[in-house]
């Protein structure tokens, strides 16, 4: 279980998270939606200790992430796969080397590593791309390699940062399918950060909207689809006045 407890985070004068609280239950896929720049990536990075909260805490299986020492953090991170927005592949390494890096770090047997690389690439339909360099791949393929690199570690949790952003609709659908397939095959608990509602509905069990540093509303896919909250409605329907209303809406509106 991943729990955000009243998390505050600011960069200089910019308050990004303002009492963000959310519970992600074991086995579910939680989708966090919100406008660009609303702090979705920042929230996600707290889970693996890439960022530490100014106040509040994030707990993974009961352990407070920012209290972990180096070894504790290493252990935590080896159980969490992170799929980055632009894949963040190591561009001096081949696809195979990208996948092997984390596995070698866990000191797995070379045969197991070989097998994992093969299986993980198969899971994202990229068999045969082992010796390619990231620069030789399309955006969609890079994202799939990023996903393969994360699942190669057989994590208990998978965190996706905008898995479909910037992809054409067909490639997006492929990625959505892969995310669903990954979850079925590996039984992972997931957090998916996105502003792509098609993707949110396709992969999520529950959806939470991040708005002004807090969770505006959280509910099942159906609850969110039928929401009467004006801010959430505007966002999921993609109506342009959302952007202007968001500046004028009174703060602290009831969820």
């Amino acid at each position: 279980m991943i729990v955000f407890n009243d998390v505050y985070k600011r960069f200089g004068a910019k308050e990004v998270l303002n009492g963000f609280s959310l519970e992600v239950r074991d086995g579910e896929t939680m989708v966090i939606i919100g406008h660009s720049g609303s702090g979705k990536s920042v929230a996600l990075k707290h889970v693996v200790g890439l960022l530490n909260p100014d106040a509040g805490d994030v707990q993974v299986d009961g352990a407070v992430v920012h209290d972990l020492d180096r070894d504790g953090l290493t252990a935590l991170r080896s159980g969490i796969g992170f799929v980055f927005q632009f894949a963040a592949l190591f561009d001096s390494m081949t696809v195979r080397e990208n996948l092997e890096l984390g596995l070698k770090r866990q000191r797995l047997d070379p045969r197991v590593i070989e097998e994992r690389v093969h299986e993980s690439l198969a899971l994202v339909d990229l068999e045969g791309a082992e010796d390619k360099l990231p620069a030789e791949l399309s955006g969609g393929m890079r994202k799939r390699v990023g996903l393969a690199r994360a699942i190669a570690l057989r994590p208990q949790y998978l965190l996706y940062d905008e898995p479909t952003t910037g992809l054409d609709p067909v490639t997006s659908a492929v990625i959505n399918q892969l995310m669903v397939r990954t979850r079925e095959k590996l039984g992972v608990t997931g957090i998916v950060v996105t502003h792509d509602m098609t993707s949110a509905y396709a992969v999520g069990d529950r959806i939470a909207m991040l708005y002004r540093g807090q969770v505006r509303q959280v509910g099942t896919v159906d609850q969110i689809r039928r929401t009467h909250d004006p801010i959430v409605r505007q966002f999921i329907e993609g109506r342009p006045e959302a952007a202007t209303d968001l500046q004028t809406a009174p703060p602290g509106v009831e969820r």
Binding site: G81, F84, L101
Partner: peptide
């Protein structure tokens, strides 16, 4: 990529 390195422990 630096973040990715960190998440790979």
């Amino acid at each position: 990529q630096v973040d990715a390195l960190e998440t790979l422990a």
